[in-house]
Every structure is written in structure tokens, then in C-alpha cells.
Design a protein around this nucleic acid. Structure first.
Lengths: 225, 225
DNA sequence: GGGCTTGTTATGCAAGTGTATAAATAGCCT
DNA sequence: AGGCTATTTATACACTTGCATAACAAGCCC
């Protein structure tokens, strides 16, 4: 029995070098690696090892920052939603612009890059598909949706007020729901089949449709026929 | 060594009873069990064993009808999409109704049960979330979407023709895209947060918004203010 | 009713999963 | 410089996964 001695030149693979990063940074890296993995391989393909590889660490480290995979996914989703609504609303903060211009800018921003984006859509769809089974997801969506809709409603009220119109609350709500649906519907199509539309086309359609919904005379008017 | 004899009263679990079903039936059952599993647990939770359990068979049988899990999922998705578009278009085949009535009926059908349905939405979102990475899914969506949009475009043309209007092709396309977005957007919200809306409210909003988009005078008109 | 086909079950297996725990080393503090 | 701590790696483990194959029996055909 030769029984090879262990300390022989059996050059063991050297232990991997690493750097210590701040907690904030590591958590953020892990969250982004998680979203990347989900967008690319879906929830099923987003394994701890895949995520860790993408974040440039080993799988065990994840457990040092998150209690488990579940919590990592939840935090990743929360962060994604936060960034989405933040971007979406950012287009509304325009100083010295007419309400109507602000509304148009809002629609334009929401129907172009970076909000129209296949990766973000994949993430949204993947997570929201679980809303039926996961009440916390459903609640997160509802909150985001209502926040968004309230913004829309506020701008609509301003636009109409500028036209000396004062709609009833129920009318305002209807307008907000409809406008929200228009933006959402066009957003979905833009993300899924963006190359079917000319650049800016979705925004143009969105603005014109919304103006029709609000009963506003189009600014540059070219009638059909 | 007592070497217990095998034929001892070590009552082996009796082999499970089963019935032979037709191929058609079994495949359909498996597909529906697959969709149930995906809707309930997501793609990650839809394992062969879960699916088989729900279909009332054992996991091995699946491989007798499908080359692998991948193909089962694809067939399930294709069947789901087929049923969805079929249902959606069914509302259009109304004899002796005005184009405008048909359009309204179409919108109403698409914004109520059974098309507004959380389970179907979960399935749609779960699968469509993979469209970015799976070209076959992206193609399936595009085909379904274009088919749907063409139906809309045809009805819109009829509606406008009944009003003696003959829009340019590009105008017609814009209308169809916008109307499609309205229906899609309201559909999403109805599925995700149906209890936020009164029964029939989404359909009402959809119809009014579409009428505004097409420049049709509302039938029952109650102005704001 | 007895064989034969084949739909169906049962069992096994290698790869991959999330989690737990131990070992190591990077980098701060003095 | 040198220890100390806690971030990070590495390894182990129980379990699940999809897939392969063998054993079985349901029910048609003659």
C-alpha cells in the first residue's frame, strides 16, 4: 500500500484572494447580481451560486448578508420597484413648464429608454407573476400603482384647471385610470416588441390618445383625410 | 446472520392502481396540471413530480408523452395563448350588430371575467417574462399581439366607415395600437387589483376612452361640470 | 380467456439546490 | 508590526431536480 503522504507536491488549489468591501456596497452588488440573474435565467435559474458568481464572490457570503434566498429576492424586488417609480416620477419635476407640457414630458419619458427596457420588463413580469400567490408582492404592486396613478391624477387636474375645467372627483379618477392604462399598455408593447415601432412613435401615440381622453385640442393638428 | 427471507410479511407497498387513458386526454390533463402548477408555484415550483401529482399520475409518465420538461412547458404555453386569443376574439363574432356595438362588446368582454383573471395573468406574466431570453416566446407573443391588433384595426375601420370617415392607413394603425394599449393596460390592472374597481367599471372606462380616441360622440353623454 | 402491446408505475442516479459550519485571511486598531 | 475581529472562502450535507430504465399490469384482439 503506497499510501501517498498528504504533504506531497499535490499542489492544492490556492485559496481564492478577496477584498473586504463595505456592507452597503456588498449588499448592493448582491442585489444587482440577483436582478441580473433573474432577468437572464428567470427565478428558477437565479441560484445562489449563479448570483454569487456574478457578484464576484462565493455563494456562502450571501448568507452573511441575507438570512436566506427568499429575503434576498424580496429586497431585490423592493429595490427594483423603488428605482422604477423614482425614474417614472422624475420626469414630472419640471420647473416653469405648463401643466400640459409636464404631462407630455411625463408620457414621453415613460415611453422611451431607459423606462422602455426589455430587461426591466422581464424582471417586472417575473416578479409580478407571483403576485397572485404572494400577498406582499401584490401589496407592493398596489402601492406603486396607486402612487403612480395619484401623480397622474394631480397633473391631469392641473392640466384641466389651466383650461378652466373643474371635473368631478369621479371624472378625475376615470381619467387617471385610463391614462395609466394607456401608458402601461404602450410600455408593455414597447418593451416586448420595440423594433415594431419607430423611435418616439409610442410617445406620440400616447400623448395624442391622452389628449383625446382629456378632450384637449391637439397642438399640431393634422386631421385624418 | 439471520438473513431475513424476502417473502417474509414485510408487506411491500402494493403497486398503485391505474387506468389507461387516451393519449389526447392524458396530454391535455398534463398540460392543465402544468399550468396549474406554474400559476400556483411559478416556473421554479412546477416540478415534474408536482405536475404529475396534480394530474393524478406518476412523474415517469410525463416522459412518455413529452420529450422533456421544456417541451411540456412550451406546449402548455402555446395552448394557453391559443385559448386566450380565441376567447378574446370570440366576442367579435356578433351577427347583425352595428360596428360600434361590436367594438363595445369586444371591449366589455376583454375587461370582465373570464378574461380578467388573476390566474391567467400570473401565467401570462410568468411566461412572458422569459420572452427576452427565449426567442420562441417572443415570437409567440408578437404573433398573438399582431393578430389581436389586426382584429381591432378591422373593427375600427368598420366603425369609422359607418361614420363616413376613411382614415389613412397610418391613422388606422395608430388607433389600433392605442386601443390595444388601453385594453391591455386595463386588463393588467383588473387582474392585479380587481377589487379596486366596481364591477363593469373597467369596461366603461375602456369604452369611453376608446370612443374619445376615435373621436366618436358618446352615446349617453354626461359632461363633466 | 390468454397472450401481447404499451401505457403506467417504481426505482435509481448524477447533477444541482439551499443551508450549515469550519477554516482562513484582510485590514483595522493600538 | 502584530494581534483581533469579522468578512470571506471552502467544504459538507441533506434534499430535490430532471432524466433513464426496468418491472408491471390494463385492456384490446383473436
Amino acid at each position: 500500500m503506497p499510501d501517498a503522504a498528504d504533504p506531497a507536491p499535490m499542489n492544492a488549489p490556492p485559496r481564492r484572494r478577496f477584498r473586504r468591501e463595505g456592507e452597503e456596497r456588498r449588499r448592493q452588488d448582491l442585489i444587482e447580481a440577483t436582478l441580473d440573474s433573474v432577468a437572464e435565467h428567470g427565478l428558477q435559474g437565479a441560484t445562489l451560486r449563479t448570483i454569487a458568481l456574478r457578484a464576484g464572490v462565493t455563494a456562502g457570503l450571501i448568507r452573511h448578508y441575507f438570512p436566506g434566498k427568499e429575503e434576498l429576492l424580496q429586497e431585490a424586488y423592493a429595490w427594483l420597484m423603488g428605482r422604477m417609480t423614482e425614474q417614472a416620477k422624475a420626469a414630472l419635476v419640471m420647473e416653469d413648464a405648463s401643466p400640459r407640457q409636464r404631462l407630455a414630458a411625463f408620457v414621453t419619458a415613460n415611453l422611451n429608454a431607459p423606462i422602455i427596457d426589455q430587461r426591466v420588463f422581464s424582471l417586472w413580469a417575473t416578479f409580478i407573476g407571483r403576485a397572485g400567490a404572494d400577498p406582499s408582492l401584490a401589496r407592493a404592486h398596489r402601492e406603486g400603482y396607486l402612487g403612480f396613478r395619484n401623480e397622474v391624477e394631480a397633473v391631469v387636474a392641473e392640466v384641466l384647471a389651466a383650461e378652466r375645467r373643474k371635473p368631478a372627483a369621479s371624472q378625475l379618477r376615470h381619467h387617471a385610470i385610463a391614462i395609466n392604462a394607456i401608458i402601461d399598455g404602450l410600455w408593455v408593447e414597447g418593451c416586448l416588441a420595440g423594433e415594431m415601432f419607430a423611435p418616439g412613435e409610442l410617445a406620440t401615440i400616447g400623448i395624442k390618445t391622452i389628449e383625446a381622453e382629456l378632450g384637449l385640442a391637439p397642438l399640431e393638428q393634422f386631421q385624418e383625410k
